[in-house]
C-alpha cells in the first residue's frame, strides 16, 4: 500500500458563533510512502493546525483522516496516543529533548514506549546516531549540545521506532541557515532511507529544493506547487 496518509475534506474551526475562526477549509491531501513534502505559508495560515491534525493531536471539525489505511477515531485520546506511538515521528522547532535525560535515555524511552525490546532499541539507536553523526554524544545531556546537534538527536528520536509518517514543525527555524539546510537535508535523507512520508512545515522558502512536493497554505486552503 503506497498511500500512507489520506486527508479528506478536513476543516477546522476554532471557537463558536461570531467569534469563531475557520483555519482549515476542506483540505484534501494524500501522501505516499517515501514522499517528502514541504508546507509553506505565512504565520496564522493554519500550517501548525494541519500538522497537528496529521499528527493525531487535534481533531478536525469535519472531514476524515486515514493513516496506514486506518480511519482515525479522534474522539478517543487513548487511540490517538496509540496512533502517535506507532505511526508518527515528530521533530519540533526546538527539538524538545527532555532536558533531564541524556541523549541515549531520550531515545530509549521513546523506543520502549513504542514497544521495541531493549535490544532492538539499542540496535536502532546505534545505527541512527552513527548515521546522524551524533554517536559520540549519547551520554551528554541536551543542554551540552548545540542547536544542530539537538535537531539531529531529535531526528534520531523521531525515526527510532520506524514510523511511516515523519512530521517536522519548523525544524530549522532556531538554526542558522547553513545548519538549517544541513538538518533539512538530513531529514529528507533519513525519511527516504526509512521509506517514511515526510511533511515539513517551514517559513523558509530556500529549503524547497530538498523536497519532492511543495504545498502552500493560506486562508485555510492548501494547494500544490508544481
Amino acid at each position: 500500500m503506497n498511500t500512507i496518509v489520506e486527508c479528506e475534506n478536513v476543516s477546522k474551526r476554532y471557537g463558536v458563533g461570531e467569534l469563531s475562526e475557520q483555519v482549515l477549509a476542506g483540505v484534501s491531501l494524500t501522501f505516499r510512502r517515501s514522499e517528502t513534502c514541504v508546507l509553506l505559508g505565512p504565520s496564522g495560515s493554519g500550517k501548525t493546525t494541519l500538522l497537528s491534525i496529521l499528527g493525531c493531536m487535534l481533531s478536525p471539525t469535519t472531514g476524515a483522516l486515514h493513516i496506514a489505511g486506518q480511519q482515525v477515531e479522534f474522539m478517543r485520546a487513548a487511540t490517538l496516543s496509540e496512533l502517535r506511538r506507532r505511526y508518527i515521528g515528530f521533530v519540533f522547532q526546538h527539538a524538545q529533548l527532555l532536558p533531564f535525560l541524556t541523549v541515549e535515555e531520550n531515545l530509549r524511552i521513546v523506543g520502549r514506549n513504542a514497544g521495541l525490546s531493549d535490544a532492538a532499541v539499542m540496535e536502532r539507536m546505534e545505527r541512527l546516531l552513527t548515521r546522524l553523526s551524533v554517536d559520540q554524544l549519547r551520554r551528554k545531556s541536551p543542554a551540552q549540545l548545540s542547536g544542530g546537534q539537538r535537531q539531529r538527536v531529535a531526528i534520531a528520536r523521531a525515526l527510532l521506532h520506524r514510523p511511516p509518517v515523519l512530521l517536522a514543525d519548523e525544524p530549522t527555524a532556531a538554526l542558522d541557515w547553513h545548519t538549517g539546510a544541513g538538518v533539512a537535508e538530513l531529514l529528507v535523507e533519513q525519511a527516504k532511507a526509512e521509506q517514511a512520508v515526510l511533511v515539513v512545515v517551514t517559513h523558509d522558502t530556500r529549503l524547497v529544493s530538498h523536497f519532492d512536493r511543495v504545498l502552500r497554505i493560506d486562508g485555510g486552503r492548501v494547494w500544490e506547487e508544481v
Partner: peptide
C-alpha cells in the same frame, strides 16, 4: 512532548 510522542 511525551504526550505528542505517544505517551498516554
Amino acid at each position: 512532548t511525551l504526550l505528542a510522542l505517544g505517551f498516554s
